[in-house]
Nucleic acid binder design. Structure first.
Lengths: 200, 200
DNA sequence: TAATTATTTAACAATTAAGTTAAACTTTAT
DNA sequence: ATAAAGTTTAACTTAATTGTTAAATAATTA
C-alpha cells in the first residue's frame, strides 16, 4: 500500500480516470471528487492541470514503457527476454488499459510534444540495438515473412489491443469484467508462442 | 469523387478530423474551417454537434465494421474469407486510422451508448456463427493453444494496432507518413499467414 | 495552549465553446 | 427581374471549465 497523503490520493485518482477508466478529458472537479477532496486543494497541491498531467504521465510511462525498454535490454536469452517483456506489458496494461490511448490522443492534439519527447528518444536509442537482436533470432530460426519491425509491432499489438478496445470487445464476447481480465491474462503464453513461432 | 455539396464537404471534414487525424474532440469551428465554410452554416445543415456526430459515425461504421461482418458471413472458403477481411479492414483503417479510438473514447464517456448499440448487437449476432466456423478451422488444422476468441482478437489486433498508434510507432521506426503506410500495407499477407498458421 | 499547517467553502474573473438570431449579401431558379 | 434558397457576418446568450482568492474551520505540532 502506498502513502495516503493528499498528493498520492490525487495522483492515484488522476491515473485511474485518465489511464484506467479511459476518461481522456477528465475534468479537475471529477479528479478532486474521485480523490475525496475539493477543487481548491487540488490546485493547492498541483497548481494547474498541465502540471498534474505531466507528473502522472511521467510516473506511468516510467513504470510501463521505460521499464519495458529496460527488460528488453537485459543480457539474458532472447526467448526468455521476450516472455518476460510480454508478461510485464500485460501486467501494466491490466492496471492502465488506456495509457497508450491517452498518450496518442495527446500527441494528436499536437500541442506540446515535450511531454512524450523523453519517451520517444529513449525508445529510439533502445530500438536500434533491439532490432538487430530480433533480426538475429529471425535468421537463426528461419522465421519467414516477418521483419524485425513486424516482430515488435506484432508483439505490442497482441498485448495491447484487447485492453485499448475493452469496452467493445468485452461486450461483444459477452464477458464480465473479471472474465475479460482472465481472458487477457491467459493470452500471455499464447502470444509468447505466437511471436516466437514456437507452436509446439 | 463524391458530390461537393456543403453537406458532403462538412461530413468529409468531420470524418477527416475525428477518424483520420484523431482529433477526437474537434470543435465545431475547426470542422467548419476545414470544410471552408462557417459555423452558422454548419448549424444550418446539422442543427447541433450530436446530430453531426451520429450521422458521420454511422456512415463510417457501416463502411468498415458492418461491411466486414458482411464479408465474414459470405459463403466462401474460410481461408479466402479471412484474407479478404484482412484486406478490407486494413484498407478501411488506412482511410480512418482512429475510428476505433473514437468509438471507444465515446463509450468511455458512458453517455448515450445508443450510438454504438446497433454495432454491438449486429456484431454479437454475427459472432455467434463465426466463432463456430473458426473453431472448425482450428480443429481441422490442429492449431494449438488458440481459442476462437483469441483468433479474432489476434486478427483485429495485428491489423488495427499500427494504425491507432501511428503517431508514436511511425516516429519510433523513423519512417515518413508514406513509408509507414507502405509498412502497414505490406503487413496484409504477413498477418494472413500468421493468423491462419500458414508459415510456409 | 498557542501557532502553524491543512482543508473547506464560496464567491469571483477569465476563457472557451455551443447554439441562436437577425440582417445583409450572393447565387440559383422561375 | 423577381423570388427563393444558400451563405456570410456579427452580435448575442448560455453553459462549462479553469484558475484565483479570502475567509472560515479543522487538524497538527511545538
Amino acid at each position: 500500500m502506498k502513502e495516503e497523503s493528499p498528493e498520492n490520493l490525487i495522483k492515484q485518482s488522476a491515473k485511474r480516470l485518465f489511464f484506467a477508466k479511459g476518461l481522456l478529458n477528465a475534468k479537475m472537479h471529477e479528479i478532486a471528487q474521485d480523490a475525496g477532496i475539493n477543487r481548491a486543494l487540488l490546485h493547492y497541491y498541483f497548481r494547474n492541470r498541465d502540471n498534474l498531467f505531466q507528473i502522472v504521465l511521467k510516473e506511468a510511462v516510467d513504470e510501463t514503457f521505460i521499464r519495458m525498454f529496460s527488460i528488453l535490454s537485459e543480457d539474458i536469452p532472447f526467448e526468455k527476454k521476450i516472455e518476460s517483456a510480454i508478461h510485464h506489458i500485460i501486467n501494466c496494461l491490466a492496471e492502465y488499459p488506456f495509457i497508450e490511448s491517452f498518450i496518442i490522443s495527446e500527441l494528436n492534439k499536437e500541442q506540446d510534444q515535450n511531454l512524450t519527447q523523453p519517451l520517444i528518444s529513449e525508445g529510439k536509442k533502445f530500438l536500434k540495438k533491439f532490432l538487430k537482436e530480433i533480426d538475429n533470432y529471425i535468421k537463426a530460426n528461419k522465421i519467414p515473412h516477418i521483419t524485425p519491425e513486424d516482430f515488435i509491432v506484432n508483439m505490442m499489438a497482441l498485448c495491447a489491443y484487447p485492453y485499448s478496445t475493452m469496452p467493445i470487445v468485452q461486450n461483444l464476447l459477452g464477458l464480465t469484467e473479471k472474465e475479460y481480465n482472465i481472458f487477457c491474462e491467459k493470452r500471455k503464453t499464447m502470444i509468447t508462442r505466437l511471436v516466437l513461432m514456437k507452436n509446439k
